[in-house]
């Protein structure tokens, strides 16, 4: 129908699920490392981003969607990024 010859074999979802579980365990184990606040935050957010990307791409089937869906994601992502960067470019330099 709408999705072009999409494979309906459960192999890919199960492999993606396995990767998600491994990443979850990895991020819990890595949180025990003493790498300072910024390091810990960086590691945790990087792993979370990879997991989110896996869910978006495979579970939410972005891999089978036309380009416009990916462009929308890009726009949303850059808007988010702009909001965070602008907020912190103000907040970090405030004298309270």
């Amino acid at each position: 129908m709408t999705t072009h010859e999409q494979s309906l074999s459960p192999r890919t979802p199960i492999m993606v699920f396995g990767a998600l579980i491994i990443l979850t365990i990895a991020t819990v184990l890595l949180s025990g490392l003493d790498v300072g606040n910024t390091g810990a935050l960086l590691i945790a957010m990087s792993v979370a981003s990879i997991k989110a990307a896996l869910v978006l791409y495979f579970f939410m089937h972005l891999n089978h969607e036309p380009l416009i869906f990916k462009l929308f994601l890009g726009v949303a992502f850059f808007t988010l990024l702009a909001i965070f960067v602008l907020t912190f470019s103000d907040y970090s330099f405030r004298v309270i």
């Binding site: 991020t27 949180s31 606040n37 810990a40 945790a44 979370a48 978006l56 579970f59 939410m60």
Partner: peptide, 23 residues
């Protein structure tokens, strides 16, 4: 319904480390 459910999952993926891991 599935897309909605996965988004809720994605949000949890970020909530989890911020509240439970980076202590």
């Amino acid at each position: 319904c599935g897309l909605y459910w996965h988004l809720v999952d994605v949000i949890w993926i970020f909530l989890f480390p911020l509240y439970y891991l980076v202590a």
